[in-house]
Amino acid sequence: MPSSAPDDSAMVELDFAAETASVDAIQRAAYRFCDRFSCELIPGETTHRCLLTPVDDVDVAAEVASFRTEVLDQTLRERIRAETEPIRTMILAQAFSKTGVVDPQDMA
């Protein structure tokens, strides 16, 4: 078996409270870690369960800790995106529009 094959016996189960971490945030974190874990996500009403299977010989404890931090960061990114999305859209609209339809006063 190649050394990069997933090791099911080392699978780690993580639970995230659904009210603090969205499925999207967990999925984005899982993608960032796809070179270290394969991830199965089981969404729930109150808890999202995450099954992480290490790929290759990663330092599981350290990487799991990093994964938890990454989920927190993704949750924060989600909040920043939501809060700044209207402004981002306005800025880009103004940047690429020469029509004058975007009134700077509306951006205040």
Binding site: I87, I91, L92, Q94, A95, F96, P104, Q105, M107, A108
Partner: peptide, 11 residues
């Protein structure tokens, strides 16, 4: 408002 105008210009 100025930061929005400047960001648009830079973009």
């Amino acid at each position: 408002r100025t930061p929005l105008t400047l960001l648009a210009l830079k973009a």
